[in-house]
Write a protein that binds this DNA or RNA. Structure first.
Lengths: 197, 197
DNA sequence: TTCCAATTGGTACTCGGTACCATAAGGGAC
DNA sequence: GTCCCTTATGGTACCGAGTACCAATTGGAA
């Protein structure tokens, strides 16, 4: 395997150092008490450079997560069943993706817990989380439509998945290990709804 | 009925004029091209005063909506069935509230359409919408718990309602009249999910 | 009228975010 | 190696959102 170019490596290192510096400072002082200038100084880059790597201060909190979504979406684009999916089939598909996403959270538990705490304490970070989720839902909807699902199904199934995810997250609190089972349980309860609820 | 005090009337008038000025300017120039100073000048108040009535620039876009939620929540606190609600009963209750909320959107169609356009064009306003929805869900969850629902049911039912709302909104586009039927249809499909989906 | 509380608008400040510019450094062609 | 082009960097200067503070005005009640 060929090494990435020196440029690319430097770039990656700078990015990682900014994230590292940011999380350390957030852990020490809290989100509001850390300025972008502080992060840049700790990471030994200019303030301008910070904004070249991250569109805004919030983005550094969620660094990397967008990649997960894109990965998952790309991976899922190839998985198709037979014929256009109805709501049940669509739900089963987004369920898979959602649970895969939950599993990622346990990869770096320490950072996960800190991030959950930051989000809980700062409404604007919760807002930003919601933006990511919207994007996830839209991507899923797009894929479902490509697979022949109706507009209604494509819109509803991903939103239901998000509902199960959010509800599961609320039940699990910030315990990374509890996340996946809680979300799975929510999906299960969805399947047990009696007709004409 | 006694008239509210002169102070209260002036206060209400100032607030209304700020909202009016803001919406007019947003319609003319778009959200980004209007500064808080512009709004304040048009409304003939000081910039400082703007921030006394609205916590930030985004808040003026959603002025009044929070009142709806509080109203509805208060109203719903008194509606109780017999015994602790299961998921189906909880879902039926939040369904009522959600549809009532949709109906409000048709009260001022012009402003509704403009607001939807602003939200669609500006991600940060979409984020803020999500914040309101989170708060709605949390309030509903609280009420459900008061009525004896389990933590899981209380967390899941409001999120499912939000899912139906969001999906319905996506299908309806910015047509106020289409909103309620679309959302209702989403709820209906939820009741038709076969067991062990 | 007098006094208190509420409201106002101005000034000055911090911080997030952007535009612009001169400089440095990587990477390829020769 | 050296030339040249592209990319990345950091600094300066600017704008707008949001906050703290203060002096002046105004509503309301004694």
């Amino acid at each position: 395997m060929t090494q990435p170019s020196l440029r690319a490596r430097k770039r990656q290192r700078a990015r990682d150092e900014i994230i590292e510096a940011a999380y350390r400072l957030f852990a020490e002082r809290g989100y509001d008490e850390v300025t972008v200038a502080d992060i840049a100084e700790r990471a030994e880059v200019g303030r301008t450079t910070f904004f070249r790597y991250f569109g805004d201060k919030q983005e550094v909190v969620f660094a990397g997560e967008q990649d997960w979504l894109d990965d998952l979406a790309a991976h899922h684009r190839n998985l198709r069943g037979d014929g256009p999916p109805g709501l049940s089939e669509a739900l089963a598909q987004v369920r898979e993706l959602t649970l895969a996403l939950c599993a990622r959270a346990t990869l770096d538990p320490g950072r996960h817990v800190l991030r959950e705490r930051l989000i809980a304490d700062h409404p604007e970070l919760g807002d930003r989380t919601a933006r990511k989720q919207r994007r996830f839902a839209e991507t899923m909807a797009e894929i479902l439509r490509e697979h022949g699902a109706s507009a209604e199904t494509a819109a509803l199934a991903p939103q239901l998945a998000l509902a199960c995810y959010t509800a599961g997250r609320a039940v699990a609190g910030d315990d990374p290990a509890a996340l996946t089972p809680s979300v799975a349980a929510a999906f299960d309860r969805l399947g047990l709804l009696p007709p004409t609820a």
